[in-house]
């Protein structure tokens, strides 16, 4: 049986039918949509990388080893996510009808640049903070990762606490520090009043007893601005 005979048989038995133009058009569109989606997510990840890097509390310390500084400074989760979506953008664009014609390095560079520009735009819009907070609240493992990452910042003897607020009663907050210990923190009533459970805080002050702390400055984990605007700028604290 020749190739022709087999083909004629299959065609007569209607085993094979041409797929419609729409099928291929849709397939091509799906790859472009996924490419755009990947760049958008990459942009979002990049905006959070900017936020976490610029507002990183490691800038305020001088007594932490370079290794701990590096661990605190590199936003591994978001850089990982950015890499995944740059790869996804590359994969999708090379699977479009004309994508293969472009230089592969150029596609990767353009994807990264697009994420960079979008990241900057998202940062200006402030969306990055909301997304990062939502991720911290809802994505399993992210909270744990961040808590691990900032172990090096915590040093109660040197006057530094960092952790997540569990409860607030009156002028005292209960803070679950990154080393899992629970601290009672007292501070300026005007500042403590605006603190809510779930907030991530870094606190400068001094130990006043066993797992008790007097806060002088209470700030968000990321960001140098104090919650209490009456206070002077953050001091540089050394051992």
């Amino acid at each position: 049986m020749t190739i022709k005979d087999t083909i004629i048989n299959k065609l007569h038995q209607s085993e094979v039918e041409p797929r419609t133009k729409w099928y291929f058009a849709a397939k091509n569109i799906v790859f472009w949509v996924l490419f755009v989606f990947s760049v958008l997510i990459g942009g979002m990840a990049m905006s959070i990388v900017f936020h976490l890097s610029l507002m990183n509390p490691v800038h305020e310390l001088s007594d932490v080893s370079w290794w701990h500084r590096l661990i605190m400074f590199v936003p591994v989760f978001w850089l990982g996510l950015l890499s995944v979506f740059v790869i996804s953008a590359f994969f999708n664009v090379t699977h479009t009808k004309i994508g293969y014609k472009y230089n592969h390095y150029l596609i990767v560079v353009i994807s990264i640049l697009a994420s960079f520009v979008l990241g900057f735009v998202f940062m200006l819009g402030g969306i990055n903070k909301i997304i990062e907070q939502k991720t911290f609240d809802h994505v399993p493992g992210y909270r744990q990762l961040q808590v691990q990452q900032y172990h090096g910042w915590m040093n109660p003897e040197a006057g530094r606490l960092i952790g997540v607020v569990e409860t607030r009663s009156g002028e005292v907050i209960e803070l679950r520090a990154v080393d899992r210990s629970l601290w009672s923190v007292g501070g300026d009533p005007a500042v403590v009043a605006i603190i809510q459970p779930g907030m991530r805080l870094k606190i400068f002050g001094r130990m006043s007893g066993d797992h008790m702390f007097d806060a002088q400055i209470i700030s968000p984990w990321f960001g140098g601005r104090m919650l209490d605007e009456r206070k002077s700028p953050l001091p540089r604290i050394t051992k």
């Binding site: 190739i3 083909i7 094979v16 797929r19 099928y23 291929f24």
Partner: peptide, 20 residues
């Protein structure tokens, strides 16, 4: 080779609308 060629021509037929 004949098996591959059969598949090639049937794929051409099936995907003829994909030809650019």
């Amino acid at each position: 080779i004949e098996d591959i060629l059969q598949e090639v021509f049937l794929t051409v037929y099936q995907n003829i609308n994909d030809y650019d």
